[in-house]
Every structure is written in C-alpha cells, then in structure tokens.
Amino acid sequence: MSRVPSPPPPAEMSSGPVAESWCYTQIKVVKFSYMWTINNFSFCREEMGEVIKSSTFSSGANDKLKWCLRVNPKGLDEESKDYLSLYLLLVSCPKSEVRAKFKFSILNAKGEETKAMESQRAYRFVQGKDWGFKKFIRRDFLLDEANGLLPDDKLTLFCEVSVVQDSVNISGQNTMNMVKVPECRLADELGGLWENSRFTDCCLCVAGQEFQAHKAILAARSPVFSAMFEHEMEESKKNRVEINDVEPEVFKEMMCFIYTGKAPNLDKMADDLLAAADKYALERLKVMCEDALCSNLSVENAAEILILADLHSADQLKTQAVDFINYHASDVLETSGWKSMVVSHPHLVAEAYRSLASAQCPFLGPPRKRLKQS
C-alpha cells in the first residue's frame, strides 16, 4: 500500500486566492494483479454453464480479502454459449462490502496482453458476489490457432484489481511565511564533478583513453575500487588504474551511474553493462540491467540471455529466462542460440529441462510459493 502523499503547497495549487485553511483528501486504492494459466484448455468440458475456478489470491499475505477468477468455457447461458465468460469473485471478506475495479486480458504466445476488457467503474462486491463479462471473447476466435491465444493449448488470463480503501483527510492552515525547501541536487552536482573533471585525484585508463576521477567517490560506490585504493596496490601508489576489459562507451555509462545513480543509455548496452556491474560489484546497476534484459526477452535471444545471466550470477534474470524458455519451449528449441547452448553450456540445458519437467508435473513435489530491489 502506498504512503499517503503530503498535500501540495497551496501557493502551487492555483494562481488564484489562497485560503486560510485547507483539506486534502486521499482515497486510498490498493492495486494488484494475478495470472492464471489453464493447461490443455481444449479438453475443458463443453457443457453450457460449466465452471472452472482459479485458486484464491489477494494483494498480499496480510490481506484478508480473498478473490478468485471464474471461467465458463462455453458461456454462462444460452445467450453467451458462443463466448467464454469471465468473472472476478470475492471469496471471503471481513467487511460487509468492498468496491473494486478490474481489468481482464489474455496473454498471447509472446506474453503480450490482448483482448483487454475492464470495468468502467468500481463495482460493489459482497462475499460470494462476482462481476465480469458474460461475453468476454468469442470461442471461435479464441480457438483459432492463427490468433495465437492458446500457445501449446494453454489459456493464460491476466487480471488487474484495484480495491478502494478508506479515504484519509489531511488538513492544515496557511501561513504568510511559507518556506520552500529546494530539491536535493546531489546527483546532478556529483555528475558535474565527473563531467568537468574537477578536483580529480586519479586516472582511469580504458582502451587508450584516459578519464579523470575521484578516488573517494569510486571507493564509496564500488567495493572493488575501494579494495584497489585501500591496500598497497599499484593503483593506490600511482593513482592510476588500467581497465582492459570494458569498452570506453560502456565504461562511461558505468561511471555515470557511479556518480549519479542513473544510467540513461542502459537499454542500448544492458548486456555489456551487466558484465561491468558484476565485475565492479555495483549491485543496483546489475539489477537494473537484469530488468532491462528481462523486458527484451524473446524467442530468438532467450538462450543467449540465459548464458549471460549464468555467467554473471544474475539470479533474477536467470529465473526469468528459464521461465520464458519453459513457456515458449517449442519455439526456443528451434533457435540457433539454443542449439549452440546445447554444445557450449549443457548444464544450462539440463537446468531448463528440470524446470520444465517440474512445471508440467506438479505432483512430483509440493507447490512452490512464489514470493528486491534495493
């Protein structure tokens, strides 16, 4: 649940008159999402009104509101027999009622949201009550392989729920002597030191190019640089560091992050930047690179990204790559990247197969709970 924001200063709310007192009302909304995959969808019983329910879910471990999704594969009634019906059901509720908006969509073979439908307002739910769409999607369109909505005969539904909580009022009075504290510009100011090479005390040599930097900042941000300058190493004695395995453009992006906490060109060089972040123990930059690479996972590059993640101990990226390969196994196994990995990294192939087997055979063990970014 997000923290209630402070109200904007009255002088910034309007260029008009300023009242002596004010009130700011925040209506709290808890948002969460749920993904439900139905394997072997074409084998569902086709009687009209037949119901399939998901397991229950909530916004978190401490949330007492429990929900589930309900599907009628062949419609709810005679009117909707040519459609799939989809509903959000409130299973248990400690209150007399709650209000919530919802959005349903289908994830296609690429994991993209399609055929989205959402409620136009927050509906009133009581325990045992459901709301949804009797005519969510035509069955003939859903079952047509050309539309790519049932890869490997799996129907994957994605649901986003927004639950309306209580409202909170914050009130106060205006004073004539309003003090406005300026925003912190530390990142910009440190970035200026790097860009202008002011007050530098060490030189970093990268592929024949020299960059002036500040030992204190490098040591504070990177345990690797800290070790170089702290001990009686040649880098500490000469205040000069030779860097041979990072390209200059990648190095500059890494230094921008060290000084400012930002990497504006990360998406263009996420793979190389991940390697640099791993070498210099820049954990936050490493996770930022993992996130960017996750966003660009595809059938063509899944094997290469899995190898990269394994090489640099990028655990979150590795998990996402394995899950992606499992979901698109029939396509990924035909790529040149996968065939190369079979020869060069057989242990990763074995890991992917083990994960695929456990996903398809849940009876082999208890269900695993899916539970950071600093």
Rank of each mutant, 00 (worst) to 15 (best):
V179R: 07
E97M: 10
Q127H: 10
V164P: 02
S295C: 09
Q320W: 10
D144L: 14
V206H: 12
T156S: 08
F32L: 14
Q316F: 01
K238V: 06
P366H: 08
L273N: 00
R3L: 03
K154F: 15
V299P: 08
K372W: 12
A207R: 14
C44E: 04
L143N: 14
W67V: 11
E230R: 02
K180D: 08
S54Y: 00
S226Y: 15
M117R: 11
N39D: 04
N174H: 01
K28G: 15
Q209E: 13
K237E: 03
K252L: 05
L155N: 08
S55C: 04
P362I: 15
S162K: 07
Q209I: 08
A281Y: 04
P5K: 02
Q26P: 09
P9A: 14
Y259H: 01
A309S: 03
S54I: 01
S226C: 13
G16A: 09
F324W: 05
L218K: 00
F257G: 11
R370D: 05
F141E: 14
K101R: 12
T260A: 03
F125H: 06
P73T: 05
Q360G: 03
D245K: 15
E12F: 13
D272M: 02
V181H: 04
Y34D: 08
Y24A: 03
D331N: 05
L186A: 09
F136A: 08
I170L: 01
M288D: 02
P182S: 02
Q26K: 04
K81P: 15
L190S: 11
D323K: 08
M255G: 11
A61V: 06
S171I: 03
Y34T: 01
L311N: 13
E230D: 12
R284P: 01
S80E: 08
S374V: 10
D201E: 11
E78G: 07
E195K: 04
L348Q: 03
E351M: 08
D331K: 11
A19M: 07
L306Q: 01
S96G: 08
L297G: 00
I38Y: 06
E145M: 03
S313V: 06
D310M: 12
A302W: 15
K115D: 09
N244M: 03
A270I: 05
L308N: 14
C159A: 06
L274K: 00
S171K: 06
V287R: 04
A220V: 03
E20A: 03
G16S: 04
P9I: 10
A122T: 07
T335M: 05
S42A: 06
S6Y: 07
L84S: 07
V71Y: 10
Y327I: 09
E230P: 15
K28L: 11
Y83F: 05
L297R: 00
K64T: 03
E112V: 07
V164Y: 13
K134L: 07
N296Y: 14
P223Q: 12
L293S: 15
Y353R: 00
A122I: 13
A357F: 01
E160F: 09
K339D: 15
E46G: 04
D140S: 09
F32W: 12
V91C: 11
T319N: 04
S80Q: 12
G75N: 11
A263T: 07
F229H: 15
S313I: 04
E234I: 15
E304N: 11
A216P: 06
Q127A: 07
Q173A: 04
N108E: 12
L218C: 13
I305K: 02
P5Q: 08
S59T: 01
M1T: 01
M233E: 13
P346M: 06
Y83W: 05
K262I: 03
R198A: 15
L65I: 02
N40T: 08
K180Q: 10
F225M: 12
R240F: 06
T25P: 00
N265L: 05
L155H: 03
A216K: 00
S355G: 04
K369T: 03
N244P: 07
F251W: 12
I106W: 15
S119H: 02
S105C: 15
F225H: 01
M341K: 00
L348K: 00
I305T: 04
D267E: 04
K252M: 06
D63W: 01
C93F: 03
P10D: 04
A329K: 07
M117Y: 09
F257H: 08
E113G: 08
L150D: 02
K154E: 12
A19W: 13
A109S: 09
K28H: 02
C184W: 02
S336I: 07
L155M: 08
S344M: 08
M13Y: 04
L89A: 15
N108P: 09
F229G: 14
F102R: 00
S21L: 06
T319I: 01
K262Q: 02
G208A: 15
E334G: 09
S358D: 02
V51A: 05
E351L: 14
E351C: 09
H345V: 02
R368E: 13
A207L: 07
V181Q: 06
F43G: 12
T200W: 15
I258V: 02
M48G: 09
V98L: 02
C202Y: 09
Q165R: 07
G208V: 02
Q120P: 04
D152M: 07
V18R: 07
Q209Y: 09
F32R: 06
R70S: 14
C205P: 15
N62K: 08
F199D: 15
L143H: 13
K81L: 09
D201Q: 01
A292M: 04
G148K: 01
K369V: 03
K135M: 13
T335V: 01
F257R: 00
C184R: 03
F324D: 00
V343Q: 10
E234N: 15
T156G: 02
N62E: 05
Y123N: 01
M254Y: 03
E97Q: 10
A122G: 11
Y353C: 06
L348P: 00
I52N: 02
Y259N: 01
A329Q: 03
A270S: 04
E304G: 07
V4K: 10
N301G: 07
A357N: 06
L293K: 06
K64N: 11
S21E: 03
D315P: 13
S226D: 15
A270T: 07
L143P: 13
R139L: 10
W131R: 01
T114D: 14
L308C: 07
K318H: 04
V246P: 12
S330Y: 08
S313C: 03
F133S: 11
A213H: 15
W22Y: 08
L333D: 07
T335H: 13
V332Y: 00
T37V: 05
R45I: 02
F41L: 02
K95Y: 12
